[in-house]
Structures are given as C-alpha cells and as structure tokens.
Simulated scan of single mutants.
Amino acid sequence: MIFSAGQRIVFVGDSITDCGRRGRATPYGDGYVNLVRAMVTATHPELGLTWVNRGTSGDTVRNLAARWEEDVIAERPDWLVVKIGINDVWRFFLDQPDRGVPIREYESTLRDLLSRAVKATGCRLILVEPYLIEPDRGDPQRAQTDDYVRVVQDLAVEFDAVHVPTQAAFDRVLTSTPAGQWADDRIHPNLPGHAVIAQALLAAIGWRLPT
C-alpha cells in the first residue's frame, strides 16, 4: 500500500465526499471516505494515519478554488484525494448553465489547483473520477461526464497521480444491475454505491486484505 507511517490524508470534493461530515456524521462523513478510512485503519493500525474530510456539498472547481488555501493547503496533506466534476456537469442539466463549468475552465482550474497544492505542500495526489451512474453512454449527461472523466485521466498522467477509475467501477456493476440499485438520482450513492467508490480507491492505492 502507498501510505506510510504518520501521514496525513486529506479528501476534498463535493457532496459525495462531504456526506454529512459537517453534521450528522462528523467528522468523516458516512460515505466512501469513512469506508476507506475504516478499512485502511483496520488492516494497518500501526501506521497511525490522520484522515481529514474537506468535502462540501454542491461544489464545483470554482468553489474549490475559493477555499483551496484554507481547506487544502493549510491542512498540509501528505496525500491529497480530489474528487470533483459531477456538479460542474450536472448544473448544465438542471437548467443552471451559468453555474455549470465548461470543460476547458474545469481543466485549467483543476490543473492550477493541483499545481498549487503540490508546490505548497509537496503532497502526492490521488485523483478520483467524476461519474454518472448511467449505463447508456449515449445519454447526454453521461456523454458529457465522460469528457470530464478523460480530463481527470489526463491530469493523473500529467501529475504522476494515483488514478481512481470510478466511472469504470460503476459501469462494471451496471452490467448486471439497474442504476437505481446504487443511487436514486444517478449521482448520490447509497451505502453500496459508496462501497463501489471505496473499493475502486482501495484498489488504486494497493490496499489488500491481510492473509
């Protein structure tokens, strides 16, 4: 596994990362962040890792930019987990085009934020794809989401980051189950849906059950 003793892992993103971390499920939320924390801690308690959730519901990259210094750089992460992009696309399909983020702005803003974090803290990056829990790749929102997924894939290569293929993880389960089994709105996962994300992240960081 990629984490070392005493490291600080900071998660930042939107509601999928937030998941009640500022209210009902303080401080980690009750989604994929807490699932990953629980599994890694249970198998590697000797590492003494520190876990920080700075997800905020509704965020796009524009919102991340506004709070980047306080919620990311000031946290001094050793590893920074970034999962952003769902709202950047979704706003266009909620008749809120002024709040949607065009793909070139999304790419340039995210690149700038990642560069600032690495330069300021020396952190390593884990980039988690946005997704849509929708098997029809011809669906307009799914097609646009796939474009943003490719941006994250390219940035992962550019920054030598760990890449978490979230969309592919959902695509695998959708071959045998309907989208509604994982989320009511194709966006906000139930607990099994969060487990799909957590499994993808755990695999990407090299986590394994002890033998």
Rank of each mutant, 00 (worst) to 15 (best):
M1D: 09
M1T: 13
A5G: 07
G6Y: 05
Q7H: 10
R8L: 08
I9T: 05
V10T: 05
D18Y: 07
C19P: 02
G20Y: 08
R21T: 08
R22C: 06
R22I: 05
R22A: 12
G23L: 11
R24Y: 09
T26H: 10
T26K: 14
Y28G: 04
Y28R: 04
G29I: 10
G29A: 12
Y32C: 03
Y32R: 05
Y32P: 03
V33T: 00
V36M: 03
V36W: 01
R37G: 02
R37D: 01
T43C: 09
P45R: 04
E46L: 00
L47V: 09
T50C: 10
W51S: 07
N53G: 07
R54Q: 15
G55L: 03
G55Q: 13
S57C: 13
G58V: 12
G58F: 12
D59Q: 14
R62L: 10
N63G: 13
W68P: 04
E69W: 04
E70S: 14
D71N: 14
D71C: 08
V72E: 01
I73T: 09
I73A: 10
E75H: 05
R76T: 14
P77G: 02
W79V: 02
V82Q: 05
V82E: 06
D88N: 11
P97T: 07
P97K: 06
D98N: 14
R99H: 14
P102N: 13
P102S: 13
I103Y: 03
R111G: 07
L113S: 01
R116Q: 13
R116I: 07
A117M: 09
K119Y: 04
K119F: 05
A120P: 02
T121V: 06
G122S: 06
G122M: 02
C123A: 11
C123N: 06
R124H: 14
L127Q: 10
L127H: 08
V128I: 14
P130S: 12
P130E: 12
R137I: 00
R137G: 00
P140S: 10
A143P: 01
V149Q: 01
R150K: 15
R150C: 06
R150T: 14
L155H: 07
A156G: 15
D160S: 15
V162W: 08
H163I: 12
P165N: 12
P165M: 11
Q167R: 11
Q167M: 04
A168G: 14
A168E: 15
F170E: 07
F170K: 01
L174Q: 06
S176C: 07
T177G: 00
P178M: 08
A179K: 00
G180A: 05
D184H: 12
P189Q: 08
L191D: 13
P192M: 10
H194G: 03
A195S: 11
V196I: 15
I197P: 00
I197E: 02
I197R: 00
Q199K: 13
Q199I: 04
Q199E: 07
A200G: 06
A200W: 01
A203Q: 13
A203F: 03
R208K: 02
L209F: 12
T211W: 04
